[in-house]
């Protein structure tokens, strides 16, 4: 299992691995927002938590179609499926690798981008906490979408169509946590809900992903 994680991380960091693309995309979205809604700082401050959450979500989505498609192309998935590693574990590891290379950098960079959008002072800590709690769920749910569409040529757009509705609860509770944090309100309810969703998804979703992938491999 460690070997698979290390391999996926190594591949992401080598040339052509696409590490940093999600981060750059997140930055561009953040920069484009003031151009589209105007530079008034009070307006930006109000929408900053939601915009940052949406940007992070879209950045997570960006790299999902490479998650399994490349391994299918070069035959690695067939070989992994015949290896002693259960497919459920392999997919959990791949989701973890996706989070470490996409979600975690977003979490760490988010406060920086918060400055660009004039995020109010108490919002920073809650933005980081909500993203740290929520982005793992985005990676795990995204892995399920990737497993569903891995056999489909040019499945990228379909993948977005399938995955985005599944992101709704995570987005609602995540953005609500950040928004309440920024407004200095009590965040415990949405933060706990968000954590609950993430834990439940990590526990159950790999089974659905593995079932879908087995169908696609046969």
């Amino acid at each position: 299992m460690k070997a698979l994680l290390l391999r996926d991380l190594m591949l992401a960091f080598r040339a052509g691995g696409g590490f940093g693309l999600g981060l750059a995309f997140f930055l561009i979205v953040t920069v484009l927002v003031p151009f589209s809604v105007g530079p008034q700082s009070d307006l930006l401050a109000r929408i900053a938590p939601g915009v940052l959450w949406l940007g992070a979500l879209l950045a997570c989505l960006l790299s999902l179609d490479r998650l399994l498609a490349l391994d299918l192309e070069d035959g690695s998935l067939d070989l992994l499926a015949t290896s002693p590693l259960p497919l459920e574990a392999a997919l959990s590891i791949k989701a973890l690798a996706h989070w470490l290379t996409t979600g975690l950098p977003l979490v760490l960079a988010a406060p920086l981008f918060g400055v660009l959008l004039n995020l109010p002072g108490p919002g920073y800590i809650w933005l980081v906490i909500s993203l740290a709690l929520g982005t793992p769920a985005l990676s795990v749910i995204g892995t399920f979408g990737a497993a569903l569409t891995v056999g489909i040529k040019r499945g990228g757009l379909l993948l977005s169509l399938l995955v985005l509705p599944l992101y709704v609860p995570t987005l609602i509770f995540g953005a609500e946590t950040a928004r309440r944090g920024a407004a200095g309100m009590d965040t415990s309810t949405p933060a706990l809900m968000l954590a609950g969703i993430t834990l439940a998804v990590i526990a159950v979703m790999p089974f659905a992903s593995a079932a879908a992938l087995r169908v696609n491999l046969r």
Binding site: P165, L166, V168, P169, I172, F173, E176, T189, P190, M193, I197
Partner: peptide, 13 residues
């Protein structure tokens, strides 16, 4: 499962 979850999330929201 996610549709039901979304229903409650939206209610909360």
């Amino acid at each position: 499962v996610f549709a039901v979850l979304s229903r409650y999330a939206v209610n909360f929201w």
